[in-house]
Design a binder for these strands. Sequence first.
DNA 1: TACTTTTATGCGGAAATTTGCGGGTTTGCC
DNA 2: GGCAAACCCGCAAATTTCCGCATAAAAGTA
Lengths: 248, 248
Amino acid sequence: MLKQERQAYILKQLDVHNKVLTTDLCSSLAVSEDTVRRDLQDLAEAGKLHKVHGGALSTSFQYSLQPAPVYHQLEKQNIAQKGINLMRDGMLVLLSGGTTILQMVKALPPDLQVTFMTISIPVALELMNHPRAEVIFIGNRLNKNTKTAVGSEVVARLEGVRADLCFLGTNSIDVEAGVTDSEWEIIDVKRAMIAASDRVVSLAISEKLNTVQKFKVCGLDEIDYIATELPYDAGILECFAQTGIGIL
Amino acid sequence: MLKQERQAYILKQLDVHNKVLTTDLCSSLAVSEDTVRRDLQDLAEAGKLHKVHGGALSTSFQYSLQPAPVYHQLEKQNIAQKGINLMRDGMLVLLSGGTTILQMVKALPPDLQVTFMTISIPVALELMNHPRAEVIFIGNRLNKNTKTAVGSEVVARLEGVRADLCFLGTNSIDVEAGVTDSEWEIIDVKRAMIAASDRVVSLAISEKLNTVQKFKVCGLDEIDYIATELPYDAGILECFAQTGIGIL
DNA sequence: TACTTTTATGCGGAAATTTGCGGGTTTGCC
DNA sequence: GGCAAACCCGCAAATTTCCGCATAAAAGTA
Protein backbone atom coordinates (compact mmCIF):
# COMPACT_ATOMS: atom_id res chain seq x y z
CA MET A 1 0.00 0.00 0.00
CA LEU A 2 1.30 3.39 -0.95
CA LYS A 3 2.11 5.96 1.64
CA GLN A 4 -0.38 8.42 0.20
CA GLU A 5 -3.10 5.80 0.36
CA ARG A 6 -2.41 5.22 4.00
CA GLN A 7 -2.44 8.91 4.77
CA ALA A 8 -5.67 9.37 2.84
CA TYR A 9 -7.18 6.53 4.82
CA ILE A 10 -6.08 8.13 8.06
CA LEU A 11 -7.62 11.44 7.11
CA LYS A 12 -10.82 9.76 6.12
CA GLN A 13 -11.00 7.95 9.43
CA LEU A 14 -10.44 11.26 11.14
CA ASP A 15 -13.27 12.85 9.23
CA VAL A 16 -15.60 10.10 10.30
CA HIS A 17 -14.61 9.60 13.91
CA ASN A 18 -12.79 12.81 14.76
CA LYS A 19 -10.03 10.78 16.31
CA VAL A 20 -7.73 7.87 15.52
CA LEU A 21 -5.53 5.66 17.65
CA THR A 22 -2.06 4.68 16.52
CA THR A 23 -2.62 1.08 17.50
CA ASP A 24 -5.91 0.83 15.63
CA LEU A 25 -4.34 2.27 12.50
CA CYS A 26 -1.31 0.03 12.53
CA SER A 27 -3.52 -3.04 12.78
CA SER A 28 -6.03 -1.99 10.16
CA LEU A 29 -3.31 -0.80 7.80
CA ALA A 30 -1.02 -3.72 8.61
CA VAL A 31 2.10 -1.66 9.10
CA SER A 32 4.34 -1.02 12.05
CA GLU A 33 3.58 1.58 14.66
CA ASP A 34 6.58 3.57 13.57
CA THR A 35 5.18 3.93 10.09
CA VAL A 36 1.84 5.11 11.38
CA ARG A 37 3.58 7.50 13.70
CA ARG A 38 5.61 8.90 10.83
CA ASP A 39 2.46 9.30 8.76
CA LEU A 40 0.76 11.13 11.58
CA GLN A 41 3.80 13.32 11.96
CA ASP A 42 3.79 14.19 8.26
CA LEU A 43 0.12 15.01 8.30
CA ALA A 44 0.48 17.01 11.47
CA GLU A 45 3.28 19.08 9.94
CA ALA A 46 1.05 19.69 6.95
CA GLY A 47 -1.64 20.86 9.31
CA LYS A 48 -4.04 18.13 8.28
CA LEU A 49 -4.57 16.81 11.77
CA HIS A 50 -3.71 17.41 15.38
CA LYS A 51 -1.33 14.84 16.79
CA VAL A 52 -1.64 13.76 20.38
CA HIS A 53 -0.16 11.04 22.54
CA GLY A 54 -1.54 7.75 21.26
CA GLY A 55 -3.09 8.97 18.04
CA ALA A 56 -4.46 12.08 16.43
CA LEU A 57 -7.48 14.36 16.48
CA SER A 58 -9.32 16.08 13.69
CA THR A 59 -8.29 19.71 13.35
CA SER A 60 -11.92 20.72 13.16
CA PHE A 61 -12.49 19.05 16.48
CA GLN A 62 -10.60 21.57 18.55
CA TYR A 63 -12.86 24.42 19.37
CA SER A 64 -10.78 27.36 20.36
CA LEU A 65 -12.19 30.50 21.77
CA GLN A 66 -11.76 33.33 19.35
CA PRO A 67 -8.94 35.34 20.84
CA ALA A 68 -11.06 38.23 21.87
CA PRO A 69 -8.85 41.17 22.58
CA VAL A 70 -7.94 41.11 26.23
CA TYR A 71 -7.51 44.52 27.69
CA HIS A 72 -4.66 45.05 30.08
CA GLN A 73 -3.18 41.74 29.00
CA LEU A 74 0.22 42.39 30.50
CA GLU A 75 -1.22 43.51 33.81
CA LYS A 76 -3.44 40.47 33.96
CA GLN A 77 -0.55 38.16 33.26
CA ASN A 78 1.28 39.75 36.12
CA ILE A 79 -1.71 39.18 38.38
CA ALA A 80 -2.05 35.63 37.09
CA GLN A 81 1.49 34.78 38.11
CA LYS A 82 0.89 35.99 41.63
CA GLY A 83 -2.14 33.75 41.87
CA ILE A 84 -0.33 30.74 40.46
CA ASN A 85 2.36 31.10 43.09
CA LEU A 86 -0.19 30.17 45.73
CA MET A 87 -1.05 26.83 44.17
CA ARG A 88 0.54 23.58 45.30
CA ASP A 89 0.23 20.05 44.01
CA GLY A 90 -2.78 18.22 45.33
CA MET A 91 -4.82 21.29 46.15
CA LEU A 92 -8.49 21.75 45.41
CA VAL A 93 -8.96 25.18 43.88
CA LEU A 94 -12.19 27.03 43.13
CA LEU A 95 -12.27 29.40 40.18
CA SER A 96 -14.92 31.93 39.29
CA GLY A 97 -15.18 33.42 35.82
CA GLY A 98 -13.75 36.48 34.13
CA THR A 99 -10.89 37.34 31.87
CA THR A 100 -8.37 37.63 34.68
CA ILE A 101 -9.08 34.09 35.81
CA LEU A 102 -8.86 32.97 32.21
CA GLN A 103 -5.44 34.55 31.87
CA MET A 104 -4.30 32.75 34.97
CA VAL A 105 -5.52 29.41 33.66
CA LYS A 106 -3.69 29.92 30.39
CA ALA A 107 -0.50 30.62 32.28
CA LEU A 108 -0.65 27.53 34.49
CA PRO A 109 2.63 25.60 34.49
CA PRO A 110 2.11 22.20 32.84
CA ASP A 111 3.50 20.19 35.74
CA LEU A 112 1.07 21.56 38.28
CA GLN A 113 -1.25 18.86 39.55
CA VAL A 114 -4.34 20.52 40.93
CA THR A 115 -8.05 19.75 40.99
CA PHE A 116 -10.04 22.71 39.80
CA MET A 117 -13.70 23.39 40.33
CA THR A 118 -15.18 26.13 38.26
CA ILE A 119 -18.50 27.59 37.27
CA SER A 120 -17.23 29.26 34.10
CA ILE A 121 -17.56 27.63 30.68
CA PRO A 122 -14.59 29.46 29.12
CA VAL A 123 -12.41 28.66 32.10
CA ALA A 124 -13.40 25.00 31.92
CA LEU A 125 -12.66 24.88 28.21
CA GLU A 126 -9.26 26.38 28.74
CA LEU A 127 -8.50 23.93 31.52
CA MET A 128 -9.17 21.09 29.08
CA ASN A 129 -5.82 21.96 27.52
CA HIS A 130 -3.90 21.47 30.72
CA PRO A 131 -2.22 18.07 30.87
CA ARG A 132 -2.54 17.31 34.55
CA ALA A 133 -5.39 19.37 35.87
CA GLU A 134 -8.50 17.56 36.99
CA VAL A 135 -11.50 19.68 36.14
CA ILE A 136 -14.92 19.64 37.73
CA PHE A 137 -17.61 21.86 36.39
CA ILE A 138 -20.27 22.81 38.89
CA GLY A 139 -23.16 22.96 36.54
CA ASN A 140 -26.67 24.12 36.46
CA ARG A 141 -28.45 26.88 34.62
CA LEU A 142 -26.03 29.11 32.75
CA ASN A 143 -25.96 32.88 32.72
CA LYS A 144 -25.40 34.09 29.19
CA ASN A 145 -23.58 37.29 30.03
CA THR A 146 -20.99 35.77 32.28
CA LYS A 147 -21.08 32.29 30.75
CA THR A 148 -21.10 30.87 34.27
CA ALA A 149 -23.36 28.52 36.14
CA VAL A 150 -25.79 30.14 38.54
CA GLY A 151 -28.70 29.13 40.72
CA SER A 152 -29.44 27.33 43.94
CA GLU A 153 -28.25 24.02 42.57
CA VAL A 154 -24.73 25.38 42.30
CA VAL A 155 -24.88 26.75 45.81
CA ALA A 156 -26.08 23.40 47.10
CA ARG A 157 -23.26 21.56 45.37
CA LEU A 158 -20.71 23.94 46.85
CA GLU A 159 -21.95 23.32 50.35
CA GLY A 160 -20.40 19.89 50.30
CA VAL A 161 -17.03 21.20 49.19
CA ARG A 162 -13.96 22.09 51.24
CA ALA A 163 -11.43 23.80 48.97
CA ASP A 164 -7.92 25.04 49.73
CA LEU A 165 -8.09 28.14 47.60
CA CYS A 166 -10.71 30.25 45.90
CA PHE A 167 -9.88 32.75 43.18
CA LEU A 168 -12.42 35.46 42.49
CA GLY A 169 -12.25 37.45 39.29
CA THR A 170 -13.44 40.47 41.14
CA ASN A 171 -15.57 43.07 39.50
CA SER A 172 -14.99 45.75 42.10
CA ILE A 173 -13.34 45.93 45.48
CA ASP A 174 -13.49 48.83 47.87
CA VAL A 175 -12.15 49.42 51.37
CA GLU A 176 -15.57 50.39 52.66
CA ALA A 177 -18.03 48.45 50.48
CA GLY A 178 -15.99 45.28 50.15
CA VAL A 179 -16.37 43.11 47.07
CA THR A 180 -19.24 44.07 44.79
CA ASP A 181 -20.49 42.77 41.45
CA SER A 182 -22.75 43.95 38.68
CA GLU A 183 -24.51 40.66 38.06
CA TRP A 184 -27.20 39.84 40.52
CA GLU A 185 -27.32 36.15 39.70
CA ILE A 186 -23.70 35.51 40.46
CA ILE A 187 -23.78 36.91 43.97
CA ASP A 188 -25.07 33.83 45.77
CA VAL A 189 -22.68 31.60 43.87
CA LYS A 190 -19.65 33.68 44.78
CA ARG A 191 -20.72 33.72 48.41
CA ALA A 192 -20.99 29.96 48.37
CA MET A 193 -17.56 29.67 46.80
CA ILE A 194 -16.09 31.88 49.50
CA ALA A 195 -17.78 29.88 52.22
CA ALA A 196 -16.43 26.64 50.77
CA SER A 197 -12.78 27.71 50.78
CA ASP A 198 -10.04 28.01 53.36
CA ARG A 199 -8.45 30.99 51.71
CA VAL A 200 -9.94 33.47 49.27
CA VAL A 201 -7.93 35.45 46.74
CA SER A 202 -9.33 38.44 44.90
CA LEU A 203 -7.72 39.06 41.52
CA ALA A 204 -8.20 42.65 40.47
CA ILE A 205 -6.41 45.04 38.18
CA SER A 206 -5.75 48.30 39.92
CA GLU A 207 -8.48 50.08 37.98
CA LYS A 208 -11.04 48.16 39.97
CA LEU A 209 -9.63 49.10 43.32
CA ASN A 210 -11.92 51.37 45.28
CA THR A 211 -14.81 51.11 42.87
CA VAL A 212 -18.28 49.94 43.79
CA GLN A 213 -20.94 48.00 41.87
CA LYS A 214 -24.59 47.45 42.55
CA PHE A 215 -24.57 44.18 44.43
CA LYS A 216 -22.50 43.21 47.42
CA VAL A 217 -20.74 39.87 47.48
CA CYS A 218 -18.93 40.09 50.81
CA GLY A 219 -16.99 42.33 53.11
CA LEU A 220 -13.23 42.67 53.02
CA ASP A 221 -12.95 40.49 56.09
CA GLU A 222 -13.89 37.48 53.97
CA ILE A 223 -10.97 38.09 51.61
CA ASP A 224 -7.56 36.78 52.51
CA TYR A 225 -5.42 38.08 49.65
CA ILE A 226 -5.58 40.68 46.93
CA ALA A 227 -3.53 40.21 43.78
CA THR A 228 -3.01 43.24 41.56
CA GLU A 229 -0.45 44.19 38.96
CA LEU A 230 0.98 46.81 41.35
CA PRO A 231 4.10 46.28 43.44
CA TYR A 232 3.73 45.23 47.02
CA ASP A 233 4.21 48.69 48.45
CA ALA A 234 2.02 50.71 46.11
CA GLY A 235 0.24 53.53 47.87
CA ILE A 236 -3.25 52.58 46.87
CA LEU A 237 -2.83 49.20 48.48
CA GLU A 238 -1.93 50.52 51.89
CA CYS A 239 -5.47 51.03 53.04
CA PHE A 240 -6.28 47.45 52.08
CA ALA A 241 -3.22 46.17 53.89
CA GLN A 242 -4.34 47.95 57.04
CA THR A 243 -7.50 45.86 57.14
CA GLY A 244 -5.35 42.78 57.47
CA ILE A 245 -5.59 41.55 53.89
CA GLY A 246 -2.49 40.00 52.40
CA ILE A 247 -1.08 41.88 49.41
CA LEU A 248 0.46 39.73 46.68
CA MET B 1 4.22 -1.72 -28.01
CA LEU B 2 4.09 1.94 -28.68
CA LYS B 3 4.61 4.56 -26.10
CA GLN B 4 1.13 5.99 -26.57
CA GLU B 5 -0.39 2.54 -26.13
CA ARG B 6 1.42 2.07 -22.87
CA GLN B 7 0.40 5.43 -21.53
CA ALA B 8 -3.20 4.86 -22.53
CA TYR B 9 -3.09 1.53 -20.73
CA ILE B 10 -1.69 3.20 -17.63
CA LEU B 11 -4.45 5.79 -17.61
CA LYS B 12 -7.05 3.11 -18.06
CA GLN B 13 -5.69 1.18 -15.14
CA LEU B 14 -5.80 4.34 -13.09
CA ASP B 15 -9.42 4.86 -14.02
CA VAL B 16 -10.27 1.41 -12.80
CA HIS B 17 -8.16 1.10 -9.69
CA ASN B 18 -7.36 4.70 -8.79
CA LYS B 19 -3.77 3.64 -8.34
CA VAL B 20 -0.97 1.87 -10.14
CA LEU B 21 2.32 0.45 -8.95
CA THR B 22 5.46 0.85 -10.99
CA THR B 23 6.42 -2.77 -10.52
CA ASP B 24 2.98 -4.04 -11.59
CA LEU B 25 3.07 -1.95 -14.73
CA CYS B 26 6.54 -2.97 -15.78
CA SER B 27 5.62 -6.63 -15.50
CA SER B 28 2.25 -6.37 -17.21
CA LEU B 29 3.66 -4.14 -19.93
CA ALA B 30 6.89 -6.15 -20.17
CA VAL B 31 9.14 -3.14 -20.16
CA SER B 32 11.80 -1.93 -17.81
CA GLU B 33 11.04 0.08 -14.71
CA ASP B 34 12.76 3.08 -16.20
CA THR B 35 10.38 3.12 -19.11
CA VAL B 36 7.36 2.95 -16.87
CA ARG B 37 8.83 5.65 -14.72
CA ARG B 38 9.40 7.87 -17.71
CA ASP B 39 5.83 7.29 -18.84
CA LEU B 40 4.52 8.19 -15.41
CA GLN B 41 6.68 11.29 -15.39
CA ASP B 42 5.33 12.39 -18.77
CA LEU B 43 1.75 11.83 -17.70
CA ALA B 44 2.33 13.61 -14.42
CA GLU B 45 3.75 16.65 -16.22
CA ALA B 46 0.67 16.61 -18.44
CA GLY B 47 -1.47 16.56 -15.33
CA LYS B 48 -3.06 13.23 -16.16
CA LEU B 49 -2.12 11.57 -12.91
CA HIS B 50 -0.45 12.14 -9.58
CA LYS B 51 2.93 10.51 -9.28
CA VAL B 52 4.09 9.21 -5.93
CA HIS B 53 6.89 7.07 -4.64
CA GLY B 54 6.25 3.57 -5.93
CA GLY B 55 3.60 4.34 -8.51
CA ALA B 56 0.88 6.85 -9.21
CA LEU B 57 -2.57 7.87 -8.03
CA SER B 58 -5.56 9.08 -9.96
CA THR B 59 -5.92 12.83 -9.90
CA SER B 60 -9.54 12.41 -8.87
CA PHE B 61 -8.33 10.47 -5.87
CA GLN B 62 -8.17 13.32 -3.37
CA TYR B 63 -5.30 11.79 -1.55
CA SER B 64 -4.89 14.69 0.83
CA LEU B 65 -5.02 17.86 -1.21
CA GLN B 66 -7.20 19.83 1.12
CA PRO B 67 -8.03 18.76 4.62
CA ALA B 68 -11.11 20.94 4.23
CA PRO B 69 -11.68 21.57 7.89
CA VAL B 70 -15.29 21.75 6.83
CA TYR B 71 -15.18 18.50 4.91
CA HIS B 72 -18.53 17.35 6.09
CA GLN B 73 -19.89 20.77 6.84
CA LEU B 74 -22.66 20.60 4.28
CA GLU B 75 -23.71 17.13 5.28
CA LYS B 76 -23.74 18.07 8.92
CA GLN B 77 -25.80 21.15 8.24
CA ASN B 78 -28.26 18.97 6.41
CA ILE B 79 -28.42 16.65 9.39
CA ALA B 80 -28.67 19.59 11.75
CA GLN B 81 -31.72 20.93 9.93
CA LYS B 82 -33.49 17.60 10.23
CA GLY B 83 -32.88 17.62 13.94
CA ILE B 84 -34.00 21.21 14.35
CA ASN B 85 -37.27 20.40 12.65
CA LEU B 86 -38.20 18.20 15.60
CA MET B 87 -37.89 20.99 18.13
CA ARG B 88 -40.88 22.99 19.31
CA ASP B 89 -41.14 25.96 21.60
CA GLY B 90 -41.23 25.02 25.24
CA MET B 91 -39.50 21.68 24.87
CA LEU B 92 -36.76 20.35 27.10
CA VAL B 93 -33.99 18.97 24.91
CA LEU B 94 -30.94 16.93 25.90
CA LEU B 95 -27.77 17.31 23.86
CA SER B 96 -24.66 15.16 23.93
CA GLY B 97 -21.34 16.35 22.50
CA GLY B 98 -19.65 16.10 19.14
CA THR B 99 -19.24 18.18 16.04
CA THR B 100 -22.58 17.25 14.55
CA ILE B 101 -24.42 18.46 17.62
CA LEU B 102 -22.32 21.58 17.54
CA GLN B 103 -23.34 22.22 13.96
CA MET B 104 -26.96 21.84 14.90
CA VAL B 105 -26.62 24.29 17.75
CA LYS B 106 -24.99 26.83 15.48
CA ALA B 107 -27.87 26.49 13.05
CA LEU B 108 -30.63 26.98 15.62
CA PRO B 109 -33.18 29.56 14.51
CA PRO B 110 -33.00 32.58 16.81
CA ASP B 111 -36.69 32.61 17.61
CA LEU B 112 -36.76 29.08 18.98
CA GLN B 113 -37.49 29.03 22.68
CA VAL B 114 -36.21 25.78 24.07
CA THR B 115 -34.55 24.69 27.29
CA PHE B 116 -31.38 22.74 26.57
CA MET B 117 -29.52 20.45 28.88
CA THR B 118 -26.07 19.42 27.77
CA ILE B 119 -22.94 17.76 29.05
CA SER B 120 -20.63 19.27 26.46
CA ILE B 121 -18.58 22.37 27.16
CA PRO B 122 -18.30 23.45 23.51
CA VAL B 123 -22.01 22.95 22.96
CA ALA B 124 -22.80 24.97 26.06
CA LEU B 125 -20.49 27.72 24.91
CA GLU B 126 -22.17 27.86 21.54
CA LEU B 127 -25.60 27.96 23.14
CA MET B 128 -24.55 31.07 25.04
CA ASN B 129 -24.87 32.93 21.75
CA HIS B 130 -28.50 31.98 21.28
CA PRO B 131 -30.84 34.76 22.35
CA ARG B 132 -33.75 32.75 23.70
CA ALA B 133 -32.36 29.38 24.67
CA GLU B 134 -32.23 28.50 28.31
CA VAL B 135 -29.14 26.44 28.97
CA ILE B 136 -28.45 24.01 31.76
CA PHE B 137 -25.08 22.35 32.02
CA ILE B 138 -25.11 19.04 33.80
CA GLY B 139 -21.73 19.28 35.38
CA ASN B 140 -19.30 17.14 37.19
CA ARG B 141 -15.86 15.87 36.35
CA LEU B 142 -14.89 16.66 32.77
CA ASN B 143 -13.38 14.29 30.25
CA LYS B 144 -10.56 16.06 28.45
CA ASN B 145 -10.90 14.19 25.18
CA THR B 146 -14.56 14.76 24.64
CA LYS B 147 -14.81 17.92 26.71
CA THR B 148 -17.96 16.55 28.26
CA ALA B 149 -19.07 15.91 31.80
CA VAL B 150 -18.86 12.29 32.95
CA GLY B 151 -19.29 10.32 36.12
CA SER B 152 -22.01 9.06 38.41
CA GLU B 153 -22.98 12.54 39.47
CA VAL B 154 -24.12 13.32 35.96
CA VAL B 155 -26.11 10.10 35.78
CA ALA B 156 -27.75 10.89 39.10
CA ARG B 157 -28.74 14.34 37.95
CA LEU B 158 -30.27 12.93 34.80
CA GLU B 159 -32.43 10.54 36.76
CA GLY B 160 -34.59 13.40 37.87
CA VAL B 161 -35.09 14.68 34.36
CA ARG B 162 -37.92 14.07 31.93
CA ALA B 163 -36.96 15.49 28.55
CA ASP B 164 -38.93 15.65 25.32
CA LEU B 165 -36.04 15.00 23.01
CA CYS B 166 -32.51 13.67 23.20
CA PHE B 167 -29.96 14.21 20.47
CA LEU B 168 -27.00 11.87 20.38
CA GLY B 169 -23.93 12.75 18.36
CA THR B 170 -23.44 9.14 17.53
CA ASN B 171 -20.00 7.68 17.10
CA SER B 172 -21.13 4.57 15.31
CA ILE B 173 -24.44 2.92 14.61
CA ASP B 174 -24.97 -0.56 13.24
CA VAL B 175 -28.02 -2.66 12.53
CA GLU B 176 -26.70 -5.53 14.60
CA ALA B 177 -24.53 -3.90 17.25
CA GLY B 178 -26.69 -0.84 17.82
CA VAL B 179 -25.10 2.40 18.97
CA THR B 180 -21.47 2.11 20.00
CA ASP B 181 -18.88 4.61 21.16
CA SER B 182 -15.13 4.74 21.52
CA GLU B 183 -15.04 6.47 24.88
CA TRP B 184 -15.71 4.27 27.83
CA GLU B 185 -16.51 7.08 30.22
CA ILE B 186 -19.31 8.48 28.15
CA ILE B 187 -21.30 5.27 27.91
CA ASP B 188 -23.13 5.52 31.22
CA VAL B 189 -23.91 9.15 30.63
CA LYS B 190 -25.40 8.50 27.21
CA ARG B 191 -27.48 5.68 28.61
CA ALA B 192 -28.82 7.97 31.29
CA MET B 193 -29.64 10.60 28.70
CA ILE B 194 -31.56 8.05 26.67
CA ALA B 195 -33.46 6.87 29.73
CA ALA B 196 -34.40 10.41 30.63
CA SER B 197 -35.97 11.25 27.26
CA ASP B 198 -39.26 10.52 25.58
CA ARG B 199 -37.74 10.35 22.13
CA VAL B 200 -34.14 9.73 21.13
CA VAL B 201 -32.57 10.96 17.89
CA SER B 202 -29.25 9.69 16.60
CA LEU B 203 -27.42 12.18 14.41
CA ALA B 204 -24.94 10.40 12.17
CA ILE B 205 -23.27 11.14 8.88
CA SER B 206 -23.74 8.25 6.55
CA GLU B 207 -20.14 7.11 6.87
CA LYS B 208 -20.84 6.14 10.44
CA LEU B 209 -23.70 3.88 9.47
CA ASN B 210 -22.90 0.22 9.94
CA THR B 211 -19.65 0.81 11.73
CA VAL B 212 -18.89 -0.48 15.20
CA GLN B 213 -16.82 0.88 18.05
CA LYS B 214 -15.52 -0.77 21.18
CA PHE B 215 -18.23 0.06 23.70
CA LYS B 216 -21.96 -0.46 23.38
CA VAL B 217 -24.30 2.35 24.34
CA CYS B 218 -27.64 0.79 23.51
CA GLY B 219 -29.52 -1.33 21.04
CA LEU B 220 -31.38 0.05 18.09
CA ASP B 221 -34.68 -0.43 19.91
CA GLU B 222 -33.77 2.46 22.19
CA ILE B 223 -33.42 4.83 19.25
CA ASP B 224 -36.51 6.49 17.82
CA TYR B 225 -35.05 8.41 14.88
CA ILE B 226 -31.93 8.47 12.79
CA ALA B 227 -30.94 11.66 11.03
CA THR B 228 -28.40 11.43 8.24
CA GLU B 229 -27.54 13.60 5.27
CA LEU B 230 -29.06 10.98 2.95
CA PRO B 231 -32.53 11.23 1.42
CA TYR B 232 -35.35 9.39 3.09
CA ASP B 233 -35.27 6.45 0.69
CA ALA B 234 -31.53 5.79 0.51
CA GLY B 235 -30.74 2.12 0.23
CA ILE B 236 -28.43 1.92 3.20
CA LEU B 237 -31.21 3.20 5.45
CA GLU B 238 -33.66 0.48 4.54
CA CYS B 239 -32.33 -2.06 6.99
CA PHE B 240 -32.60 0.51 9.75
CA ALA B 241 -36.14 1.40 8.73
CA GLN B 242 -37.11 -2.27 8.93
CA THR B 243 -36.28 -2.30 12.64
CA GLY B 244 -38.95 0.33 13.16
CA ILE B 245 -36.70 3.34 13.50
CA GLY B 246 -37.91 6.59 12.02
CA ILE B 247 -35.76 7.93 9.20
CA LEU B 248 -35.46 11.70 9.02
C1' DT C 1 21.18 2.17 -50.03
C1' DA C 2 24.04 4.65 -46.82
C1' DC C 3 24.46 8.21 -43.53
C1' DT C 4 22.96 11.43 -39.99
C1' DT C 5 19.67 12.96 -36.58
C1' DT C 6 16.27 12.18 -33.38
C1' DT C 7 13.84 9.45 -30.26
C1' DA C 8 13.13 5.56 -27.32
C1' DT C 9 14.77 1.95 -24.41
C1' DG C 10 17.61 -0.71 -21.22
C1' DC C 11 21.47 -1.09 -17.98
C1' DG C 12 24.56 -0.17 -14.03
C1' DG C 13 25.48 2.20 -10.14
C1' DA C 14 24.80 5.95 -6.98
C1' DA C 15 21.43 8.51 -4.32
C1' DA C 16 17.13 8.93 -2.02
C1' DT C 17 12.92 7.05 0.20
C1' DT C 18 10.58 4.04 2.91
C1' DT C 19 10.11 0.80 6.41
C1' DG C 20 10.89 -2.13 10.44
C1' DC C 21 13.62 -2.99 14.54
C1' DG C 22 16.23 -2.33 18.85
C1' DG C 23 17.60 0.78 22.38
C1' DG C 24 16.56 4.25 25.68
C1' DT C 25 13.35 7.88 27.16
C1' DT C 26 8.97 9.90 28.07
C1' DT C 27 4.18 9.75 29.12
C1' DG C 28 -0.21 8.43 31.07
C1' DC C 29 -2.61 5.96 34.40
C1' DC C 30 -3.57 3.63 38.52
C1' DG D 1 5.81 6.08 42.51
C1' DG D 2 5.79 2.19 39.56
C1' DC D 3 4.43 -0.04 35.33
C1' DA D 4 3.01 -0.61 30.73
C1' DA D 5 2.32 1.76 26.72
C1' DA D 6 3.77 5.17 23.58
C1' DC D 7 7.42 7.88 21.80
C1' DC D 8 11.89 9.28 19.74
C1' DC D 9 16.40 8.24 17.63
C1' DG D 10 19.56 6.01 14.86
C1' DC D 11 20.51 2.31 11.83
C1' DA D 12 20.20 -1.16 8.39
C1' DA D 13 17.75 -3.52 4.73
C1' DA D 14 14.86 -3.31 0.93
C1' DT D 15 12.92 -0.70 -2.49
C1' DT D 16 12.53 3.02 -5.55
C1' DT D 17 14.40 6.80 -8.03
C1' DC D 18 17.74 9.35 -10.53
C1' DC D 19 21.58 10.00 -13.82
C1' DG D 20 24.70 9.07 -17.41
C1' DC D 21 25.54 6.29 -21.19
C1' DA D 22 25.23 2.91 -24.70
C1' DT D 23 22.41 0.78 -27.87
C1' DA D 24 18.60 0.21 -30.83
C1' DA D 25 14.89 1.80 -33.45
C1' DA D 26 12.71 5.30 -36.21
C1' DA D 27 12.85 9.29 -39.17
C1' DG D 28 14.83 12.28 -42.31
C1' DT D 29 18.23 13.17 -46.22
C1' DA D 30 21.03 12.66 -50.23
